[in-house]
Design a protein around this nucleic acid. Sequence first.
DNA 1: ATCCCTCGTGTAATCGATTCCACGAGGAGG
DNA 2: CCTCCTCGTGGAATCGATTACACGAGGGAT
Lengths: 349, 349
Amino acid sequence: MAGIGIKDVAARAGVSVATVSRVLNAHTSVSPAARERVLAAVEALGYRPNALARSLRTDQTRTLGLIISDVLNPYFTALARSVEEEARALGYSIVFGNADERPELQDHHIRTLLDRRIDGLLVSPADGGSPLVLDAARAGTPMVFVDRWIPGADVPVVRSDGRAAVRDLVAHLHGLGHRRLAIIAGPAATTTGSERVAAFREALAAYGIALPDAYIGQGDFQAASGRRATERFLALPEPPEVVFAADNLMALGALDAIRARGLRVPHDIALAAFDDIPWFVHTDPPLTAIAQPTEELGRAAVRALTDLIEGRTPESVTLPARLVVRNSCGERTTTAATRATLATRRSDA
Amino acid sequence: MAGIGIKDVAARAGVSVATVSRVLNAHTSVSPAARERVLAAVEALGYRPNALARSLRTDQTRTLGLIISDVLNPYFTALARSVEEEARALGYSIVFGNADERPELQDHHIRTLLDRRIDGLLVSPADGGSPLVLDAARAGTPMVFVDRWIPGADVPVVRSDGRAAVRDLVAHLHGLGHRRLAIIAGPAATTTGSERVAAFREALAAYGIALPDAYIGQGDFQAASGRRATERFLALPEPPEVVFAADNLMALGALDAIRARGLRVPHDIALAAFDDIPWFVHTDPPLTAIAQPTEELGRAAVRALTDLIEGRTPESVTLPARLVVRNSCGERTTTAATRATLATRRSDA
DNA sequence: ATCCCTCGTGTAATCGATTCCACGAGGAGG
DNA sequence: CCTCCTCGTGGAATCGATTACACGAGGGAT
C-alpha cells in the first residue's frame, strides 16, 4: 500500500517539503548540506515522485499521445518506434492508442488521452472528418498530423510525398510492357487513400493510360480488403496486368488472392506496394515497393509537436518516398535483382 | 488556459461539487432534478473529468502497463493488440513501453509506468534478472508475466508451452530424413530463450540425436542475430541440414543469410521458426512454424492481472502451441502444402 | 554601527477531483 | 404532536506534489 511521499523524505532529511521539491527540481538555491541530506533520504527511502500529483499541479505531463492507425501494420510500428525513440530523447513519454482503422476506436483513445491531460497529440487520422480531432485542435490541444491528415485544420503535417516515386513506378511498369494497371486504394476518407490513387492516375496519364473505375479496388488498408479487391480484379473479363496496393497489408491480401487462384507473380500478374517492409525481400517473389523515410517522419513529427508545446512554431514537413525495384513486376536478371535487394538492405541498416 | 472543472459544472447546475461528483460516479442518492441539471451542465460545458485529479484522490488509474519486448516483432504486436482489446472491454487502458530487447530500456519504462501509478503491470521480461521488476513485484505492484517470465518471483505467468509442438516439428523433420539439426536460440537470460533450446534438445534425444554446441547459435530475437548465427552454421565444415529459429525475426535473418550465400530453402537447407505470422505464408518458400495462441494469451494475461488488482487470486495459465507445416523443411506435394496453407488461413481468420 | 540585499528556508495556498461528516427537511410511527 | 430515521445536500479535508510569499540570518556598503 504504502506510497512514500515527499513528506516522508522531508521528515527523514529534517527539512520541509518545499526544500525537497527544490532539490528535486533544481529550482532555487538550496544549501549544499540540505541538498545532501535530501538526496540521501531520497536514496534511502527509494522515493519516486508521484507523477500524477506533479502533473496536476504543473499542468504538464511530459507525455505525448500517439494515435496509430493499426498496430499490426509494420509501417506504423516502425513509425511508432521512431516516435518513441525521439520523444524519449527529448524527455517525453509516449502513450499509444491503436485505432485499428476504426474511427470510433480512434475517438475513444483520443478521449482517454485528453482526459489524461497529455501535453500533445500525434495523429494519423483513421477517417477524414473526426469532429473530435478537429475540436481538440481548436480547443488548443497541441497537435501534429503524421502520415495522414485532415484538411481544413490549422495543424502541422509531417508526411512523405510519394508522387515522384509513383511516377518512377509507373515508368518502370510501362518499361516492362504493362498497359493495364490497377490499384487497390485505401479509404477515400484518408488522405493517403485518395492521394495515392491521384498520383497513380496522374502518372498513368503521362503515358496516355486511363484508370478505369473497374481498375480501382476499394480497400481499407487491411489485408482482407486487398484479398477481396484482387479477387474482383481477377474475375474481370480483362483483368489488369499489374496490381498496385496502396499499403503493405493490402499487398499481403493481394498475394493471398493471387495464390488462391493458382496464379504466379509476376508471370501471370505483377504486384507492387506502397510502404516497404523487411518481409518484402523474402516474399515470393520479392516485392517492388515504394519506401517511405519512416524513421525521419517519426522524428520530425515529434520535433514538430514538441516545438508546438514549448511555444515555438513548427512547419509542416514533407519528405520524398522512393521506389525500390525488386522483381514482382516483371523479369529481371538475377544479378540486377540481387543488387536491388542488397541496396535496400544496406540502406535499412 | 481553458480547463473546465467540476466547479464550473457545479456553478452552472446550481449545486455543490459534491453533488456533481455523486452524479458522475453514481454514488449515493441524488434527486432526479439535481441529476438532470448536472447532466445538462456537463453536456453544455463539454466537461470531462480530469483523470489525473481523480486518480490522485482515488489511488487508482484504471490503467495497465504493458512492457513489450520489441514492437517490430509481429508476435508482440499481435499480443499487444489482444491485450489492449481485452483491457478496454474490462474498462482499463493500456500504456505500452517498448523495451527493444534492451534491459535498460525496459527498466526505464517500468520506472515511468510506476511513477504514473498504473494499477498493474504486464511484463515480458527482456532479461532474466531485472532487479527493478522483482522489487516492484515485492513492493506490491500487481504484476503478471506474459510469454516470458522470471523464476523465483511470486507472479502469475501466462504463456504457451511449445514442447509438444517442438516434438511434432522434430518428428516431421526426422521423417523428412534430416539428422543434422541446428537451432538459433534467444538470449539464455530469457525463459523462452532457454526453454526452446531445451525442448528441441529433448525432442532430438528421443531420436537419439545430439545437439552439439556448434549447432546452437546464440541470438537475441532480432533479425541481425539470426543472420549472423546462420552464417556461422553455413561456414561449418559440416553445416546443419535444418535451422530452427527460436523466433520469427531471427528466421527472417536466417533467410537473409541463406539467400546471401546463394542457397535455396529447403533444397539446400531447411528452415523452421517459432512464432507463426501472416507473412510466413508468402515467404519463399512458405515457412513451417510453431504457432502460439497469441490472442488467447493476451486475453488471459489481462484477466489474470485484473483479477490480481481487484483482489481475486489468478492462476498461471499455460496454453499449448501447435505446429503448422508448410514447405520450408522438405519436399511435399503441392496439394498437401496448399491444404496446410488453407488450414492456417482459416484458423487465423 | 546601521541599512539593505541576498540567500536559505518554511508555511500555506493551490491544482481538480472524491468522500467523510454534519445538517435540515420531511415522512413514518408512536 | 413529538421523535426518529432517511434522504438529499453542502462544507471541508484529502490525495502529493509545486511554488508564491514571508521571514530570519548574515555580509557588504556606507
